[in-house]
């Protein structure tokens, strides 16, 4: 029991640090999802199955979907801006 608790606490610390040090957003979301998995385990090992179930259900589908939608939106906006700037540049040159 003690081994489980100590190990999972160390895992949580290491994984959280690794998520913070990931630079690219998409990869960071994958890391965050893994962090959610570890966190759910921590809650369950500390005898809080209700909280663990909340973490599992939210972290599995809803959280990545929100992040991916936001990233898709940001990328779309960036592409649109770039295209608009290019067309303006072309018009100025002509």
């Amino acid at each position: 029991m003690l081994v489980l608790q100590a190990t999972i606490l160390i895992f949580v610390a290491i994984t959280a640090t690794a998520v913070v040090f990931t630079r690219q957003p998409v990869r960071q979301v994958v890391g965050l999802s893994f962090y959610g998995i570890i966190l759910g385990l921590l809650f369950f090992i500390l005898q809080a199955p209700d909280v663990a179930l909340s973490q599992i259900t939210i972290g599995a589908v809803a959280l990545p979907l929100m992040f991916m939608l936001s990233l898709a939106k940001i990328r779309r906006d960036a592409e649109e801006r770039k295209r608009r700037e290019e067309s303006e540049h072309r018009r100025e040159a002509a």
């Binding site: 199955p49 209700d50 663990a52 179930l53 909340s54 259900t57």
Partner: peptide
């Protein structure tokens, strides 16, 4: 373990 919140999230999935 579970309840309205957890079940609601699963239903929304």
């Amino acid at each position: 373990p579970g309840g309205g919140f957890q079940g609601g999230v699963i239903l929304a999935t």
